[in-house]
Amino acid sequence: MEEILFFAAALGALGGAVGVVLMRNPLFGVLALIVHLFSLAVLFLLLTAAFVAAAQVVVYAGAVMVLYVFVVAYVGDDHEPAWEPIPGQRFLAPLLGAALFVELSIAVLGSSLLALGTDGPNVKPGFGDPAAIGTLLLERFLLAFEASSILLLLAAVGAVVLAARRREDGTPSERFAPQASEEGVPSSQ
């Protein structure tokens, strides 16, 4: 049973990843990434990481992907030109990707970690549930927790700064004014 679930989820994750790379329309790429993230959540459940799986589904596949869909819908779907500026890029890149995979596999499987070939030790029933993660996060990893909260605050401020419309001396600049009226955004701030 566990093997069947693993291979189904692994196929989903791999197919989603390949879909992200190959889809020409970014909207389909985002949908493929959602498939990938759900399959990864199944893998996390198989690894008895219930809280990480729940956070993956709710935060990643829910919130972050909605943000992507909004931006893809705003920017428009396909901007990628057909010609290749770097000759042979499409042939060299898969080669380098395969080389990276071989190198990573050699680095991990060639290490002398004996526990790699096992299923891992037997764990107590509450392994990886929200209580255990929360206790670790608020006691042992309190500094990382606070640092990540500051990082989130900085990202929010940065997004506001980046997305703000530039105006010189209070009037809307000519370049952005027609676009603003077209979207129905009121020009007063």
């Binding site: 994750a13 990573l104 790699l116």
Partner: peptide, 19 residues
């Protein structure tokens, strides 16, 4: 399942992303 499988899958996904 062996942990190895998960690690190999993880490096495969990483390589696909880099590609």
């Amino acid at each position: 399942m062996n942990i190895e499988w998960y690690i190999v899958l993880s490096s495969l996904l990483f390589a696909v992303g880099a590609m």
